[in-house]
Amino acid sequence: MNRPLRSGTPYRRRAALIAGAVALVLSATLAACGSERAGDGGQPSASRSAVAGADKLPACPSTPSKPPTTNGLPDVSLPCLGSGPDVRLADLRGPLVINVWAQWCGPCRDEAPYLAELAKAGTVKMLGIDYDDPRPELAVKFATDEGLTYPHVVDRDKAIQRALKIGGPPLTAFIDSDGAVAFVHRGVLTSQQQLDQLVEAHAR
């Protein structure tokens, strides 16, 4: 009468051992998945690190907060392409030349030497806006290759489009000492003389 019970006991023990082993395997598998998720979770922070070469660009300046001015730049803040804080455009005062460009824009390359020469002369403050540009690493390369030795910010979402009526780059805006947009040149700059004359006439 008792034999079936005794014969059944080893089976119960084996079943318990098997269940325990399965539980161990499952816990190890879940732990491994958890470590993979943690690793994946750390990946975006690495991808958010600074774009290679961005440290070679001039840092964006820290500007004191000012009230928006009549006919001034839009009240939007844009991140720096290089190092430095975000730049609130409404805080900027001239004389200032703002050039809107993108690394994919052929005419932007054509006019870049004139902007580089103006920056080298040091007669006026300058700011570049990398506009509607999905490739920040190529934008950094463009700015460094072309010798654009002034700060640049990024407007990937076209936040300034309406305020400056931008159809597309290039566009160059001239800001006076009160912060008003004195003049906007739409399209490519065709000579150093043309740029110098625009600065003389509108960036005071």
Rank of each mutant, 00 (worst) to 15 (best):
R3I: 15
P4H: 12
L5M: 12
L5R: 15
L5W: 10
R6T: 14
R6Y: 14
S7D: 15
S7F: 14
G8K: 09
T9V: 15
P10N: 11
Y11E: 08
Y11D: 06
A15S: 14
L17F: 12
L17Q: 14
I18H: 11
A19H: 07
L30F: 13
C33M: 12
C33Y: 08
S35E: 13
S35H: 07
E36G: 00
D40E: 12
G42W: 01
P44Q: 04
S47W: 14
K56C: 00
L57S: 01
T63E: 11
P64D: 00
S65H: 09
S65R: 06
T69I: 14
T70R: 13
L73M: 11
P74C: 03
V76E: 06
L78H: 09
S83C: 04
S83M: 08
D86P: 00
L89M: 14
G94T: 05
V97S: 02
I98T: 02
N99F: 05
V100K: 06
A102L: 07
C108E: 09
D110S: 08
D110M: 10
D110G: 01
E111M: 06
P113F: 06
Y114D: 13
L115D: 07
L118T: 08
A119L: 10
T123V: 05
D130G: 01
P134G: 07
P134S: 10
R135L: 14
A139F: 03
A139Y: 03
A139L: 07
A143W: 13
E146A: 11
G147Y: 07
L148V: 11
L148P: 09
L148R: 08
T149M: 04
T149S: 12
Y150A: 02
Y150S: 03
Y150E: 02
P151Y: 00
H152W: 11
D155N: 03
D155C: 06
D155Q: 06
R156L: 14
D157H: 09
A159D: 11
A159S: 12
I160H: 04
Q161N: 11
K165N: 15
G167N: 10
G168R: 03
G168F: 02
P169N: 10
P170T: 12
L171H: 05
T172A: 07
T172D: 09
T172G: 07
A173V: 02
A173P: 07
D176A: 10
D176W: 03
G179D: 02
A180D: 00
A182S: 15
V184K: 09
G187P: 08
Q192K: 04
Q194C: 11
L195I: 03
L195P: 07
L195H: 06
V199H: 06
E200F: 05
A203D: 06
